[in-house]
Design a protein around this nucleic acid. Structure first.
Length: 288
DNA sequence: CACTTGACCTGTCCGC
DNA sequence: TGCGGACAGGTCAAGT
């Protein structure tokens, strides 16, 4: 499910909803989703106050005043859904994708102060959350290897192209999906940005003219920013911190639009497999 | 070393 | 309606 724009949307919601609240109790339905030892949870999570919510790549960090942080990766089907006291009343929003919580995909429940609850749902159990000292976050293997944030101002086209060249013999799609090259891109925004730059996903990096790669840099930033503005993409699972859908899918140009016309040239969009992933392209606009 | 493939899980959709 | 197989937005380990 969530790529950079979806995780960022969840973060923006959580910043509004949970900062200042304290964790009162925690329950987890399996060891994999939340592997921390009970003793650590008791000492550094229970009673701690939430002081910040950050994002790096597709990872969320909930900072606590115990000098520990909850590190959360939603992987494919994870959700973090907040319910305040008032959410349980009769005026419950109908636009919510999910109903009564907890449901059968609920893995962890964080009971917060003021009657609020944060649910970590994850149908496929690929996601996880872990409690670690805030000062050690940067030492997690993933963070040591992960590439730059594409929306940072110092992520120039020069930096982008330089990093693409580290894998110059691979197909471009698998390279922009590689989190060590740049952070945050997943299958949706890979397809969307490659279409925008008129690049075929299986082109080898080294065979793509530099100006095209520059276009790809522009398109990636454009698509990620637009998707944040639209609250992310809801295909099946993704919801924001209030349990509501994102609307980028109705702006998508190729993703999940197989058999429909290309918005640029009218050709029929096709779905194939590149880098082991479902891949959407316009056969006329994206020639190799 | 660079690069590709399969595994991790559960649910859904599609064809027979 | 039931059943088997393919597939689903991410990442890592193990393979070539």
């Amino acid at each position: 499910m969530p790529e950079l724009p979806e995780v960022e949307t969840v973060r923006l919601g959580l910043v509004r909803l949970i900062i200042g609240l304290a964790v009162e109790s925690v329950t987890s339905d399996n060891q994999k989703s939340f592997p921390n030892a009970i003793a650590d949870v008791e000492q550094f999570l229970i009673g701690a106050k939430i002081v910040g919510v950050r994002r790096r790549a597709k990872v969320l960090l909930i900072d606590l005043d115990s000098s520990y942080s909850l590190v959360i990766h939603l992987k494919m089907t994870g959700q973090l859904v907040f319910r305040g006291k008032e959410s349980f009343g009769a005026g419950h929003p109908t636009s919510s994708l999910i109903g009564q919580l907890p449901d059968k995909s609920t893995r962890v429940i964080l009971n917060l102060s003021e009657g609020a609850v944060l649910y970590f749902n994850d149908q496929r159990k690929f996601g996880w959350m872990r409690l670690i000292p805030t000062s050690e976050v940067e030492n997690i293997d993933f963070f040591k290897k992960v590439g730059p944030e594409p929306l940072d101002t110092d992520f120039t086209s020069q930096v982008f192209i330089e990093r693409l060249m580290r894998r110059k013999n691979s197909n471009i799609k698998s390279v922009i999906l590689d989190q060590t090259v740049l952070a945050g891109v997943g299958n949706i925004y890979a397809d969307e940005s490659l279409w925008g730059a008129k690049i075929h996903p299986s082109s080898r990096v080294v065979d793509i003219p530099k100006p095209r790669l520059k276009n790809l840099h522009t398109e990636l930033i454009y698509v990620l920013k637009l998707a944040i503005e639209k609250g992310g993409s809801t295909d099946r699972n993704y919801v924001n911190a209030e349990g509501k859908k994102g609307s980028y899918m109705s702006f998508a140009r190729v993703f999940r639009r197989e058999n429909q016309p290309c918005p640029r040239c009218g050709s029929v969009i096709i779905k194939t497999r590149v880098a082991g992933r479902g891949t959407h392209t316009c056969p006329k606009c994206q020639k190799t």
